[in-house]
Amino acid sequence: MWPFDASIESLWLALYLASFALHAVFVSYVAAGTAYALVAALRRRADPIAARARDWLPFMLGAGITAGVGPLLFLQLLHQRRFYTANLLLGPRWGAVVPALIVGFYALYLAKASERWRRLALAVGVACFGFVAWSWTEIHLVMQDDAAWQAMYGAGARFYLDAAVLPRLAVWLGAMLALFATVGAWQAAPVERRRLAVLALAGLLVAGGSAAGIAFRGGFDPVHGWAYLLAAAAIAAALGWLMTARRPGGPGLAVATAATIAALVAGAIVREAPRLELVERARTTAAGAGGLPVFVATLAIGIAAITWVIRTVRAR
């Protein structure tokens, strides 16, 4: 099935996409959850969704960073020269994502622990995570624009101020709202889900509108039908959220969640499609590298161990 075949690059691609989708869930919760908690703090009203988000945000960021190592690893197999070149072109400006994440991490702990510093801490968190999201959007585009590399380097430009950055970032910010709402809704009591449904619908609207704008400007590519699946899943998710808004305890949330997962998978493939033809042919060393059986066995053990941990803490 497109884009997968029997090659080693396909296996790396599948692992890249799976780990990227998992990473996206966690970091979406962090970015959108921090923004939500900030708005709630500024409004100075008790908000159980915001309180729960504050409680979970440090864990979600830790999980997001951990899950992010996977796609970072497989990306370097698929697009090694492009990824390294983009890293080097953006240079220390790109490296600033690490201190930004450290500051953001501690800001989340501070927001959780101190009511006095909460608004400032959350504002710092939003700024840090916004910077990271913007930086990833930028580097994704720099990787593909090899025609611009030499001029960027010669000019010492550390910013990639292309018109494509903002619409792409808007797609992500909208999707992040929807993903945060999906996870948040399962944590919330039925009565709290209406607000999350509105948030998810707003997110889908922003993401859909921005994606439509990109497709209109750049020419629509059905990506072997995945773009249609993405659109259908997004519409199904919107319908699920509308059902949830009308009857918060009903099956709407399950529909919205299933559709969001489908949209996430399809979205990851649609996002990857433009650079599939840029995937480097497996280098001899990489193609012949041993250790796959050990990884598969460890992955099975790891999933079992993580499942056991979750069951243990839920049973307390």
Partner: peptide, 22 residues
Amino acid sequence: MLDEFHWLWATEWVWFAVEITA
């Protein structure tokens, strides 16, 4: 390093995920 050891690096990543979760 990544080309030669990516499956072992991925193995290390799984253990890291277990460590963080636990």
